[in-house]
């Protein structure tokens, strides 16, 4: 699998996701600077990592969505190249409209950094084939703006079309997200955005490997 991780100013999980991809894939992903005009040719996967790109100025992900590299990311995504957006990456995907909805300030107004349990709602995709439908996995969150919002019509459509990828277990929603949504797919299930950080639970030294299946699933589907 040929993967690339886009690095924005103030990305801070780019190295973590680099290592998680390398562990699952054997070869490391390309690291692409946000000012570059284009991504490497023949990519199987684009990753937008977690962090606080541009210091979250204006809105989380708003400035990154206008970075030069994003024109090529949007172009490739529209042509079907798979994209994984984690935390800030999910916010950027919503700001570029590659995914519907928006990530708002946590309902508590507090930054939340802790492990949460979430249910795998959408198994049988290239991202989630390694999980059983309904499986509960434990993944860390670390964000101040993870409160997923979309109008009711959009939320109904996401649920009806099976585009909800992960849902926080009832009672453990860390941010007030609508319908406990932690992550969503686009219609074609070639794009996944999620607030929790699977790369932070991807090797035994992390104390938990529940997130590893996402990277293993991608390698299996895209190699």
């Amino acid at each position: 699998m040929k993967a690339a991780v886009v690095v924005f100013p103030a990305s801070n999980c780019d190295r973590d996701v680099h290592d998680a991809l390398k562990r699952s894939n054997g070869t490391p992903p390309a690291m692409v600077w946000h000012q570059d005009a284009s991504l490497p040719e023949g990519l199987d996967l684009i990753v937008l990592p977690g962090g606080f790109s541009y210091g979250d100025y204006l809105r989380c992900g708003a400035m990154a969505a206008q970075s030069p590299i994003m024109r090529d990311v949007i172009d490739r995504a529209n042509k079907g190249t798979p994209v994984l957006g984690i935390c800030n990456g999910f916010q950027i995907l919503c700001e570029t409209k590659l995914l519907p909805g928006a990530l708002m300030r946590n309902a508590s107004l507090k930054f939340v950094s802790r492990d949460v349990n979430m249910t795998v709602e959408g198994a049988n995709t290239m991202f989630t084939a390694g999980y059983k439908p309904g499986q509960v996995i434990n993944i860390p969150v670390a964000h101040g703006d993870g409160n997923y919002f979309a109008d009711n019509e959009t939320l109904d459509r996401l649920e009806g079309e099976g585009q909800v990828a992960f849902r926080y277990v009832e009672g453990s929603n860390p941010n007030g997200a609508a319908r406990n949504i932690a992550g969503i797919f686009n219609e074609r299930r070639t794009i996944l955005g999620l607030m929790p950080h699977p790369e932070r639970h991807s090797e035994p030294l992390h104390g938990n490997t529940d997130g590893k299946a996402i990277f293993d699933s991608l390698v299996k589907a895209l190699s």
Partner: peptide
Amino acid sequence: EKLLANTVI
């Protein structure tokens, strides 16, 4: 429309 507001919210 392009930057200053996110018209979803």
